[in-house]
Design a protein around this nucleic acid. Structure first.
Lengths: 232, 232
DNA sequence: ACCTGAACACCGTTCAAGT
DNA sequence: ACCTGAACACCGTTCAAGT
């Protein structure tokens, strides 16, 4: 992989590959240097520091999102599309939410996305402060979902729900401990049992929860608009 | 601060103090050892490792939450109370969401809280899979809020919104950069301008967004229940 | 303009040795 | 049973020195 000199795009691209493959803890400046065939410290000249590199990587992947045509599809479909797009983006790049919520990662890519969210909820009929809040609410939900599902804990659950296969012993112990804890609470254990009978994997359950949340929030928005409720 | 031997509660207590005071990056085993007057490695005998210590700390603070009396107040008030309780807890311990979403931190304290959430949405009329999803949705929102507001970025915005005071130069530069970015998008810049005129601090805006989100989600739940919509 | 290598100040964790 | 100190394998970052 010879090349003349390093450059920003190349470094950011390699960082994204490393992040996607090994997660946020898998990215170290030394490892990245190795991947690029440079000294561990060579990147500092191009990207300043690690924080900035992560912000650049986050911005880059926002570019993958296709925005809906709001006037064509209407506010409700557009809002749904935006939520799903963000949900899928955070699923594809499981480090993304972590970066956005750790650093000041307000970037071109996010701004473009947010502008479209404003367009969407403006089309719905929200104005002024209500508009700001309406834009925020769905993305708080998406962010929360992303956190709960892009975690070590989520991966443990994923492996547990997909059967025996590659579940290490210590993970099985953790899962058993969680079950033992839930057993002390009647409603939690009833829910766990019912979930077992439904037989969905963790990933499938996640998608169900997400779909439910999206429609609930959209229903709530519609109810607010219908009632003509104002900001207080 | 003399004492016979170290013990678990003491270590967890000191860890919580350090976490509250200095944030999640402020906790190192060496610093904690110093605070307790022990060797950096003395804690390993009592808590195993750092991950486990963080999980113990998370469990401990869940105990601070007072649960609503669901039959007495009704589902909607109870749901609101639970959401606000979790919101305040994550605000008081700004490291909590990070811990919960990084490790497998399902503990006694969380289970107790969750059981009450199940009781609440069962009282509302949700059953089976719908019940699971109804319980999850509000807490995805709360988690998302917590992330967006317990971040370095949030602290930068907090200081920026509270006027000149203690804003370091480099932070001011970042804030200016964000404004410059938003200026390229008509709706974002209109919103920023309007927000400036409202004159609320970042913290006050956060509470408004939270209140809006809570009521929107509760409205959405009510709409679903009224329509008798089933799980698909 | 771009890169290297050594160095610094940190980490979490292990483990033999002590009491 | 409980704790210490040295050691190991990592970090991010700085900076003089090279080309």
């Amino acid at each position: 992989m010879a090349r003349e000199t390093l450059n920003r795009e190349q470094i950011v691209g390699a960082a994204i590959e490393l992040l996607d493959a090994e997660g946020i803890d898998g990215l170290s400046m030394r490892k990245l240097g190795q991947k690029l065939g440079s000294a561990a410290t060579a990147m500092y000249w191009h990207v300043g520091n690690k924080e900035n590199l992560l912000v650049l990587a986050a911005d880059e992947v926002w570019g993958e999102v296709t925005l809906p045509d709001v006037p064509a599809v209407g506010w409700r479909a557009a809002a749904r599309e935006l939520m799903y797009a963000a949900h899928e983006l955070t699923g594809r790049h499981r480090w993304l939410v972590r970066v956005i919520t750790t650093y000041v990662a307000y970037s071109e890519g996010m701004a473009r996305f947010q502008e479209c969210a404003y367009e969407t909820f403006e089309a719905a009929g929200f104005r002024d402060a209500d508009l700001d809040w309406a834009v925020s609410t769905p993305f708080m939900f998406v962010t929360g979902m992303a956190f709960m599902t892009t975690t070590d804990a989520a991966e443990v659950k994923q492996r547990a729900s997909s059967g025996d296969a590659a579940q290490p012993e210590d993970e099985a112990a953790v899962v058993a401990q969680v079950a033992a804890l839930a057993a002390k609470y009647p409603r939690l254990s009833a829910s766990m049992q019912a979930q077992g009978q439904r037989g969905l994997t963790f990933g499938e359950e996640v998608e169900k929860v997400f779909a439910f949340g999206v429609e609930t929030i959209l229903d709530g928005m519609a109810a607010r608009l219908a009632a003509g409720r104002d900001a207080d």
